Amino acid sequence: MTDKKQRPHYSPEVRERAVRMVMEHGGEYPSQWAAIVSIAGKIGCVPQTLHGWVAQAERDAGKRSGPST
């Protein structure tokens, strides 16, 4: 038995929808982080998780430097 907490697994559809919500509604918030915090609460994940998904989506789209998937 390990002491690690089990992380919930989110389906690709949930991830895509959450990232899309940040991209589409980000202008309604004072910052991208504020949008991430709000939307993360709605889908049931921590903001850091959603931030990672958004950052990867931005890398994949060429909007942020780093390796794409």
Rank of each mutant, 00 (worst) to 15 (best):
V54H: 00
R20N: 08
G41H: 02
S11V: 01
P12H: 06
I43N: 03
S31R: 03
Q32C: 00
S65L: 14
A35E: 03
Q48M: 09
H51I: 04
V54K: 00
G62L: 10
R15C: 01
A61L: 06
G66A: 01
H25V: 08
V37P: 03
Y10F: 10
S65D: 15
G44R: 02
R17N: 07
H25F: 12
M23L: 13
G44T: 03
W53Q: 00
V19N: 04
T2S: 15
R59T: 05
A18Y: 02
E28P: 07
M21W: 14
A35R: 02
R20M: 07
E24C: 07
K63M: 12
K5F: 08
Y10M: 12
Y29G: 09
P12G: 14
H9Y: 06
S65K: 14
K63C: 08
E24M: 07
R7M: 13
K4S: 13
K5W: 10
G52R: 05
K63E: 13
P67I: 10
S31C: 01
Q48V: 12
K42E: 15
V54C: 00
T2K: 15
M1L: 12
S31Q: 04
M1V: 13
R64P: 04
S68K: 09
Y10I: 03
P30S: 08
G26C: 02
S38D: 15
D3C: 10
Q32W: 08
K42Q: 14
M23C: 04
A35K: 09
W53S: 02
Y29P: 09
V19Y: 05
G44A: 01
A35M: 02
E16S: 15
R15W: 00
W33T: 09
V22Q: 02
M1D: 13
G41N: 07
S31M: 06
T2L: 14
G52D: 05
E16K: 15
G41A: 05
C45S: 09
T2G: 15
G44W: 02
G52N: 06
R7F: 09
Q48Y: 10
H25R: 14
P47T: 05
G52M: 10
S68M: 01
S68E: 06
I43T: 11
R20P: 03
I43L: 06
W33N: 12
M1C: 10
P12R: 13
Q56N: 04
A55I: 11
Y10E: 13
E58T: 11
Q56E: 06
M23V: 08
K4T: 11
Q48P: 05
H9E: 12
G41S: 07
V37T: 05
R15D: 05
C45L: 04
A35G: 03
V46M: 02
V19I: 14
H25C: 09
H25M: 13
A18I: 01
A18D: 05
E16L: 13
G26P: 00
L50E: 01
I43G: 00
Q56T: 01
P8S: 14
S31L: 01
K63Q: 10
G41E: 09
S68W: 01
